[in-house]
Amino acid sequence: MRNALSAALVALACLLAPCGALAAWAVFDLADTGRYVSTTAPLADDPAVRDAVADVLADALGDGIARKLGAEAANGALGPFVREAVHSFTRTEAFRTAWEAGNLAVHDAVLRAVREDGAVRGPVTVDLAPVAARVRAHLAADHMPLAHRIPVERTEVAVVPAEEVAGLRKGYHALDAAASWLPLATAVLAVTGIAVAACRRRALTAAGLGTALGGALLALAVVLGRRLTLADLPDRVHRPAAGAVYDALTATLRTASWLLLALGLTVALVSWLAGHRTHRTPPAPAVTTPAPARARV
């Protein structure tokens, strides 16, 4: 009974360990505004991300030009100049500043949608007008003809579709609650399972191997999540940019999975070596004292 109870507790602790790492990553890393901005800031130098942002901005500016100046101006001589200028703008320091400001706005909008019930009833959107204004100023500084006539309108891009906001909110609330008690529950279950075991060394070895297996499964889940995320994108051209963003945001989670794997294997190896050494150590020879001889009469 002790061994069965110990095995159940250790197995449950090993299952909860990767789940606790996932919840802690979502709440304390991904939902932290400062960490999110610092994580996404280097992506402004990624070529795939720059090209994807430039395409979105060029399309938004082209739509505005078509509404204000007509389709001929958007598709004629002005259109290619605008697209080329937008791509050039993504290589400037002003773009890096706009990129950080845009990511900050996106993060605030998503957090407001998932934390406050009913705060956002439609899709979560971000306005590209401030970035478009910077592009127009960049074109005007380069003395591009008709740059001052490029319209800067409110252009909202959906970050989270309306049908996914409710599910995202429920998932965030569940992870927020789990991040507080899952790590503590994992530690309590592991310690209790090892304490009630008939052979604590074997229970400790099993806990280490189970923790390593949980870390490996978490790393596999990150890889599968990347493939599924990129496969769901309708635009294949922007998949390299989405992959770069995914890799940046899950870097901490990948590190946590490798730490679980390394910690589990280390604990299991040390426990096995300690038990193996104990079994191979020969017992000390018993010292016998001869009985005193009887004196003859």
Rank of each mutant, 00 (worst) to 15 (best):
A73Y: 07
R67K: 11
R96L: 13
I65Y: 05
D55H: 10
A71Y: 13
A60N: 02
G79Y: 04
V53F: 11
D59P: 00
I65N: 09
A48T: 15
S88M: 04
A98Y: 02
T92A: 09
L69C: 03
T92M: 12
D46V: 09
D59Q: 08
P80G: 00
R50D: 10
A73H: 01
V82C: 05
A44S: 15
A54P: 04
G62S: 10
A73V: 11
G62D: 11
V49T: 13
A66V: 00
V49W: 02
F95H: 02
L61P: 06
A44I: 11
H87I: 03
G79R: 06
T90Y: 01
A54G: 08
E93I: 07
N75F: 10
T92F: 08
L43Y: 14
A41I: 01
D63F: 13
A85H: 11
T90Q: 06
V86N: 06
I65A: 08
L57Y: 11
V56W: 02
A52W: 12
P42G: 06
A58M: 02
A74S: 10
L57T: 09
T90M: 05
G79M: 08
A71E: 12
T97G: 15
G62L: 13
A66D: 02
S88W: 01
V56H: 05
E93L: 06
A94Y: 04
